[in-house]
Amino acid sequence: MTALLQVFFDALSLGSLYALGALGIALIFGVMRLVNFAHGDYIAFCVFAMLWPSIDAAAIVFLGNLPAWVLIPVILVLGAGISVLSEILVFRRFRNANPATMMIASFALGFVIKYFLLMLYSSRPKSIDLWSAVSLPLEIFGARIPLLQVITIAVTLVILLGLVLFLKHTRYGLEMRAAAENFTMARMLGIRANTVIMMAFALSGMLAAAVGLILATQSGTADIQMGANLMLVAFVATVVGGLGSLPGAVFAGFLIGGLSSLMQAYLPPDARPFRDAFVYGAVIFMLIWRPNGLFTQKSAKQRV
């Protein structure tokens, strides 16, 4: 029972991270048909913003010294800032380009951000000590669950709830949903394209910042590669969930997180190193079974 509970919490907390990442990608895809490969680098950027630029091995904490109630909003604003900035400087000029071109442009942008960080901070991972108190274990029904996992899950739920409220009950949320459904139609009905798109980028950047904070607390290191792996899984999750569908992205994020945790726990030890191979194998079968994703939007279906 306790082992089961542990796996359950592992699955939920890993799934939370994937879900937040997938949401960040799905939001932008919804309004712009852009698969933003720079998302992972936003995450790294937000983490490194807490350190003072130096290429020494020892990290000099800079913003990270601020008390949590200042630090969290500052990092969220930074994340939103870099995301909106990249929209204004780069993606705005690609509005009418085909998806492949946009994708490569976003990849090139991520490349620039990554090597900018590398120039300032060197490629060595640095240790960063954020709220180490939260990694203490917590007893729940006899299982020892790290407090951080509980916080991760709680934070994710709060973010998801906030996002649902924003999308369903505010004017901007309504505009964004309309734009995701049919962008041309939404513009004809008087929705300002720039506002909606910048809003999506800001939200996505904030999600990246939130993921960055959680990752940095979890691993205690800052690494320029840290966003990359998560971004890939998030990208896969967005497609498995059904591109453009926000609930689909969240659900698929949890699904993939759950699947990897389960396999980690229950595969025979010999097969365990191949865990990711099994997860991606499952993804292939899922796509063959439902090529349009688990949650298909009506507007995404091809009409003949």
Partner: peptide, 23 residues
């Protein structure tokens, strides 16, 4: 197996193939 897919689903499926091979 994969060529019946098209569009972004095919892209992701090929990426999954890459991940499986590398793993």
């Amino acid at each position: 197996v994969l060529m019946r897919l098209s569009g972004i689903a095919a892209s992701i499926a090929t990426f999954a193939v890459l991940a499986v091979i590398i793993q």
